[in-house]
């Protein structure tokens, strides 16, 4: 027996759910676990071999919503934002990532004022926002990678590679400075992006690996270049543009995740402790680079 979610349409009253139940019973003895009129989703359980048959019958009755494009995309975004049943796990993940961002931001702001007061300048504030944002985004993306494993297709791997590559390159480029950051940030972003992208695609086929690698490579290089421009040349405006683009990437990622592996996420709501531990691991890595890296105050003999 398998249990999965489907997007549905034409559900307007209680009778619709009853008819749906009857239709499913006839189609391979499937049963309706729940119906969400708000989220326009249903969860069905049936024999593994009957999945396609069930979908075909629902399609015949015009219940199956297979629309794609902007409508379907906003349906997912609204679901995640409002925390509707079908999107509960994603809603929890997003909310916790926002809290994680807040905690890290406060921590870094205090650390900057207390520990690094000598070096506090106007150039530091974009980095102060950037690091918690990058860490939260990466933790969210890592969580998706962990949940999806071999269940997602190449394009999801590509999105993951792109998000992680972009943020890694961006953070490392900003921390390591204009010259070293350009090289180290790009390479690190590329490596992280390509391996995670490939991992997310399950190493199942050459296409998944290639797409993940290429996305990580491009995004890693681009992230590092943007960070260098932003921090060294005072192009802070790019920060907002990039944040907006990263949010769009995440929204696209959520869309793909729910299109391909929604049922998997339902039972895997991330716990607070695991999320915080993941965030701290990334933070330690980033702070380590900032303190001991090639452009750190220690390396330049300032401390």
């Amino acid at each position: 027996m398998v249990s999965f979610e489907l997007r549905v349409q034409n559900l307007s009253c209680e009778a619709c759910a009853k008819v749906l139940q009857r239709v499913l019973r006839r189609a391979g003895n499937a049963s309706l676990e729940w119906v969400s009129g708000d989220a326009k989703s249903i969860r069905v359980s049936c024999d593994e071999k009957q999945v396609e048959h069930v979908k075909r019958v629902l399609r015949e009755y015009k219940y199956l919503d297979e629309s794609s494009g902007a409508g379907a995309f906003w349906h997912v975004v609204k679901g995640v934002f409002h925390g509707l049943p079908a999107f509960r796990a994603e809603h929890v993940l997003v909310t916790r990532c926002i809290v994680l961002f807040g905690v890290l931001f406060v921590f870094l702001a205090v650390a900057q004022n207390v520990v690094l007061a000598r070096f506090a300048g106007e150039k530091l504030w974009p980095v102060l926002v950037l690091i918690p944002f990058g860490i939260s985004l990466n933790v969210g993306a890592l969580w998706h990678a962990r949940l999806l494993q071999n269940y997602c297709a190449c394009n999801t791997g590509m999105m993951l590679g792109m998000t992680i590559g972009m943020m890694s390159g961006f953070m490392l480029g900003a921390i390591l400075g204009a010259t070293n950051g350009m090289f180290v940030g790009s390479v690190a972003g590329m490596l992280v992006g390509m391996f995670l992208g490939a991992y997310a695609a399950g190493f199942a086929g050459i296409m998944g690996i290639m797409e993940g690698m290429l996305a990580g490579l491009m995004a890693g290089v681009m992230g590092a270049m943007l960070s260098v421009m932003m921090v060294t040349d005072h192009l802070v405006l790019f920060l907002y543009v990039l944040f907006f683009l990263c949010a769009l990437i995440l929204a696209g990622l959520s869309y793909l995740v729910y299109k391909e592996a929604g049922p998997l996420l339902e039972s895997s709501v991330p716990g607070w402790s695991e999320l915080i531990v993941q965030g701290l691991i990334v933070l330690v890595f980033v702070v380590g680079l900032a303190v001991f890296g090639p452009k750190s105050p220690i390396a330049w003999g300032l401390l």
């Binding site: 009253c13 009778a15 619709c16 008819v19």
Partner: peptide, 14 residues
């Protein structure tokens, strides 16, 4: 109390 096509289908079936 009939609202939609589903109601028609349901009543026809019962």
């Amino acid at each position: 109390g009939m609202h939609c096509t589903s109601c028609e289908v349901l009543l026809s079936e019962v």
